[in-house]
Design a protein around this nucleic acid. Structure first.
Lengths: 231, 231
DNA sequence: CGGACTTTTGAAGTAATTCAAGGGGAGTGG
DNA sequence: CCACTCCCCTTGAATTACTTCAAAAGTCCG
């Protein structure tokens, strides 16, 4: 069993992309598998951070909860992405909760293992820095949107982002391959489910989207982009 | 000149903390100095990213500007902090602009130099990952605040954060050692200068703060914390 | 077919923005 | 040293975008 199927997958993840094969092999050897069913929690806000995961198949959502129970969706995580960056960041408690959206398959490392890997193979550590930087960048954009844009524009941006991240071309347009309730969209856009519902209804009339129960299809991506641009 | 004063400073920065002395020496040798006067631009949004800096003395502000000219202040950067993370993140264009608030002294590296350093010394790369993770985490918090809190609470959080980052104990309370206009606070809290002004006026009457032209002194930190907590 | 969850839509309420105008400090130049 | 100017700050009043409240209608699943 010299040739392992996980190896090829790992080589294409954000953490191991461009890393020498020997190093990826080391990583693969030190990893363990974890499967979680839909709606299961992978890691919980406030818990001690002990593990880092890479998503192999499936999709998860990272959320943050405030003291008084309000939630925001920080992001969705798909194949190839890192879950549990806490260990990379050198923090000791998870700043958010990660829940599986579908049945998911992960590869995991203990804190000690991943640190050893990064120490031995600096390219892994550099990838870690790059990936954290990428997320930081994403957040800057979202922060700016939230601070300067109107609700409609923010919802449009949220949907554009989702369609790029998890969009599937269909006959009717780009379908977002994640079940999304109005509440979910609200928690991503910083608004209420009511406003999301009203906005989607309006867009539906304009032929921009086509949505149902926990389902969003962008029928006219161009028009949607126009919405993100208007002042 | 074997013993260089920059060396000791570098050893305490977020990028070189805990890194073997030989590595820090390498870094110091590869660095160049840069001085910028107050209000000078260190790097400009949209420009090609070629350099990474570490702040030695002084303070800078990172801003993001939208297409239509609206601004937000992403954060302030002080001694020991990294400026120009773009290079670490592997992006090619600066996502924001960084301007010096005071006269500032930086140490810089070319992209090639810093990448070589990280490759040779994985602890530097790991620090880079940790520091990016820390910023990502900060942004998550701010995003949540912006999405779930009222303006007054957000302004309170902004000021609490600033007082931790740049607070100086004085007879009157904690003075924020950065000149801050109402507009600046607005751009950090996602509101308008008018609302900031009204809020500060109200707090002044309650004896929470004591502020003047581009100056904020927190006279009752406890009461301010209460504001951040109320629903 | 019952029941839980999701979505829609109207109406009322409100927090915060926008509009508008004036006041005050700090620095500059005569 | 005074006056002028440029910012910065303040405060009222009007407006509005969005939330909150409320109720009803769909939709999916067991």
């Amino acid at each position: 069993m010299d040739h392992h199927p996980d190896l090829e997958i790992l080589e294409r993840t954000e953490l191991f992309r461009g890393v020498p094969v020997t190093a990826v092999r080391d990583a693969q050897a030190a990893s363990f598998r974890k499967r979680v069913a839909a709606d299961e929690i992978v890691l919980r806000q406030g818990d001690a951070a002990t593990t880092l995961y890479v998503v192999i198949v499936g999709r998860l959502r990272a959320i943050q909860t405030t003291a008084d129970g309000q939630q925001i969706i920080v992001r969705y995580l798909g194949p190839g992405e890192v879950v549990g960056y806490t260990v990379l960041a050198g923090r000791d408690r998870h700043p958010g909760t990660v829940v599986a959206v579908d049945d998911t398959h992960l590869l995991g490392w203990t804190e000690a293992a991943i640190k050893e890997l990064m120490t031995k193979h600096s390219s892994i550590a550099m990838n870690a820095a790059a990936l954290m930087g990428e997320r930081y960048h994403e957040m800057q954009i979202r922060l700016r949107e939230l601070a300067t844009e109107r609700v409609e524009q923010r919802i449009a941006h949220t949907i554009v982002r989702l369609s790029r991240q998890a969009g599937r071309r269909t006959a009717r347009g780009i379908e977002i391959a994640i079940p999304l309730s109005r509440q979910d969209l609200a928690e991503m856009s910083g608004t209420t489910l009511h406003t999301v519902s009203r906005t989607l209804s309006a867009w539906e009339e304009q032929g921009i989207v086509n949505c149902g129960r926990r389902r969003v299809v962008v029928s006219d991506p161009q028009k949607l982009l126009l919405v993100t641009e208007e002042s």
